[in-house]
Structure formats: C-alpha cells, structure tokens
C-alpha cells in the first residue's frame, strides 16, 4: 500500500455534503411545485428532473463541459464577470453533482407529497393557516421519512458518482479527484492495495447509510401511525 492518500475521501464527502445541502434547499420547493402547480411548464420540467436517471453520466458531463468551457457564452460569463472557472474545478463538480443527483432528492419527496392526504392540508387552511405555514408545520413533518430518504440517496449517489466527475473535473488531486476516480486511477497504475482500501471504505459507508436509513424509517413509521 504505497503512499496512501486520504484527500480523495475527504474531497468526496465535502462534495456530497455540499451537494446534499443544495439539493435539500432546491428539492423541497421543486417537489412541492411539481406536485401542486397547475402550470403547463410542469410537463416539461418533470421529465427533465428525472433525465439523469436514464442519461449516461458521460453525456451529462460532456454537456456541462461544453456549456461551461471558457470559450462558450456561459463559461465566458462565469470567467469574465464572476471570475470563476467551472470546468476542471470543485465548483464544476458541485454543479454536475447537483444536476445528476436531483431526481434522487426530488422523486421521493414528490411521491410523498402526492400521497399526502389533501384533507389534512384543507384542515390546516380551515384553521386559518397559510400555504407556507401548512407546508412547514403540517406537510414536511409528516413526510420526514421521504425527506430522509431523499437526503440519504442524494448523498450516497454523489459519493458514488464517476462519469460526470471524470468528464467535468478530470482527476486533479485535492481538487477534483474523488474516491471513485482515485480507485480507477490506482487500478490503472496497478496499485491494487490502495484500490482495495478506497473500495472497502466506500463499500462500508454505502452499507452503513442504507442500514441507518432502514432503521430510521422503521422507527418513523411506528412513531407516526
């Protein structure tokens, strides 16, 4: 096990935490809008949200790469006006991960909102409560299991992503080289020892996450019923 480097693991978790926080802030309002809005835009947005489930990650990564390259309009805007570079940086990874993990956050929350009894929402309205207050105090506390599922799935999915990260970030140690990329590089360099350690750690983490999720949701079901 030659010169084992912890930084890919640290970077992976930093990326997953930031991505999950952003997704939580974006995912809940988006799921609410997709469930309750009567807008026609919905029919367009709905498949877009789920696209990352079927689209090859490399395709998504490729588009982001092209879109944000300094030669493109958007990339140029980021570079000259905001003075940040997106491609081959950590920021690029965050943008890619947020898009790529979006359905994992939005879909469970949306499913829970769709099956949430509308009569409870009406009961809250008849008590004089606004939509906002109803969402925060009645709806969200009662769909906690779905939110936890969304958070865990988005986190776990970001930890494990490969194609998007490789396309947008490359493999720059400490900046864009996440654990899954590191495994690939170590195998390529025939450092099987390091690859074993990275893989083992990711395996254990994935198991621990799902184990805890099941435990949490089981307790939640008993608590609510």
């Amino acid at each position: 096990m030659s010169d084992f480097d912890l930084s890919p693991l640290v970077l992976t978790f930093k990326l997953a935490v930031i991505t999950t926080v952003i997704l939580l802030a974006v995912g809940v309002p988006l799921a609410y809008w997709l469930t309750f809005s009567r807008s026609r835009m919905k029919t367009l947005v709905e498949p877009l949200v789920s696209m990352p489930l079927v689209l090859p990650p490399t395709v998504l990564g490729f588009y982001i790469l092209v879109l944000f390259s300094p030669n493109s309009l958007i990339g140029n805007f980021f570079e000259t006006v905001l003075h940040v570079r997106v491609v081959f940086t950590f920021l690029g990874l965050v943008i890619g991960s947020v898009i790529f993990s979006l359905p994992f956050m939005v879909n469970p929350i949306k499913a829970a909102l769709e099956s949430f009894p509308h009569s409870l929402i009406e009961a809250s309205y008849t008590l004089g409560k606004s939509r906002r207050e109803t969402l925060l105090k009645v709806i969200l506390p009662n769909i906690k299991p779905a939110i936890i599922t969304g958070v865990v799935m988005a986190f776990a999915h970001t930890v494990g992503e490969f194609g998007v990260v490789l396309m947008i970030g490359g493999s720059i140690p400490g900046s864009t080289r996440t654990a899954s990329i590191a495994i690939f590089s170590e195998v390529e360099a025939l450092n099987y020892g390091n690859a074993y350690v990275y893989s083992g750690i990711l395996f254990l983490i994935a198991f621990a996450i799902l184990f805890t999720l099941n435990l949490l949701n089981r307790n939640k079901v008993h608590g609510v019923s």
């Binding site: 009569s119 409870l120 009406e122 008849t126 004089g128 606004s130 009645v138 009662n142």
Partner: peptide
Amino acid sequence: QKRAISFVFQDYNLFPN
C-alpha cells in the same frame, strides 16, 4: 383562511405529527 369558520370533517383530520 380569511373566513371565520369552524369546519369539522368526517374523518377528523388531526395532524398526526
């Protein structure tokens, strides 16, 4: 929300949380 009503439903609709 702005109407001063009390509404009682058949299926109670208490908030389980």
